[in-house]
Design a protein around this nucleic acid. Structure first.
Lengths: 196, 196
DNA sequence: TTTCGAACGAAAAACGATATCATTCGAAAG
DNA sequence: CTTTCGAATGATATCGTTTTTCGTTCGAAA
């Protein structure tokens, strides 16, 4: 079918671009590289995308969507609000470190795209605050958390988790990260728990 | 007196350099600029300092020392551990934003000095963890906090506060920062408070 | 002991020539 | 009509070279 073919091609291009951007960065990846690996002439790329930047944007969006799904799945895999928060924090740590490096590399080489990336980052932020808010609300509904202002608390918790993330850049083993998250979450849980 | 004269000259150079580095950054500030504003020939600078980098290091150290003193003073001005933590968080927010920008600018223009700046940053980190630890210990001694591992808790709290700092870069008014710190600290306090 | 004019050399800026690469066009294949 | 791509275009990056800037040293003088 014609329409399906079109979608397939687009997806091939995106996949190839995702892999190449990941390996070599935005600047070092040429349209010709993408075309070659996608087995088409470079002019053909422009039948599916209006510019290199638009490919880049779709790749970023795809990475973001994948990450959201991954976090969402992890959170859904456990039951209690406490476990949800814990597994959320761990999953975002593991995954976002990769994406953050990606973003930073992009920012360094192409300052022009910074605004766009910043917007993507903010969108992801909103997703996280929303996710945490929903977990907190669930805890409040179940009578295990006592929280006055849920969105503000969610923001504070996200900030705290991010603080841990920034604290170690690359060289820290996941084990120590887990330990620190545990300490932080233990305090936070006691702080938002409903008292007997 | 001769010895006093020498110190005075050194201090003049440092003051001038501090002001110029702050305004124009390390790369854009020349030894000649410093010499002119300090009213001496540029060769004379080398009678007091062995290199531009050594001037830079002393300036960074001075900025760090000033900031430590400022935070220390603020903390000493209140009584309870809770108030101390609160005023510490606010003071570091206000002041460190400036210094962080400074550091970042330096890192961007002179990658060679990155290792040194990183060391300074880590030293400041240690200072903060130590300060928080002492406040926490005071709280434990007074029977208002119950904390299992004080240093680890201090690290977690510092991380949480830093998370707030990173969250807003420049464009956020101090008022909103205060609000967010309040929410975070309220949770944290409840989390480390000794229960009746 | 302290100051500084003059000179040195390494590194950066300026510049012009050349090459790269994103993008467009128009023709042709299916 | 949809899709492909070879070839051309122009803006921008790169590279080799010359010139300038700037950190640093030296030696003399105050």
């Amino acid at each position: 079918m014609v329409a399906l073919d079109k979608i397939d091609r687009k997806e091939i291009i995106i996949k190839v671009a995702q892999s190449l951007f990941g390996k070599f960065g935005l600047a070092k990846t040429t349209i010709e590289d993408i075309a070659r690996q996608a087995r088409m002439g470079k002019a053909s790329i422009y039948y599916y995308f209006k510019s290199k930047e638009s490919i880049f944007k779709e790749v970023i969006e795809k990475e973001g969507a994948e990450l959201r799904r991954k976090i969402q799945d992890a959170v859904s895999s456990v039951e209690t609000p406490q476990d949800k928060l814990r597994i959320y924090a761990l999953t975002r740590m593991e995954s976002l470190k990769k994406l953050a490096n990606y973003y930073n590399a992009m920012r360094d080489e192409y300052l022009e795209h910074y605004a766009f990336i910043e917007k993507a980052r903010q969108g992801f932020d909103a997703f996280e605050v929303d996710l945490i808010s929903r977990i907190l609300k669930q805890g409040v509904d179940q009578g295990v958390f006592a929280i006055a202002n849920i969105p503000l608390t969610a923001e504070a918790i996200l900030a705290a988790i991010k603080g841990l993330e920034y604290r170690w850049t690359i060289e820290v083993p996941m084990e120590r990260i887990r330990e620190n998250i545990d300490v932080l979450l233990t305090i936070l849980f006691k702080g938002i728990e409903k008292r007997a």
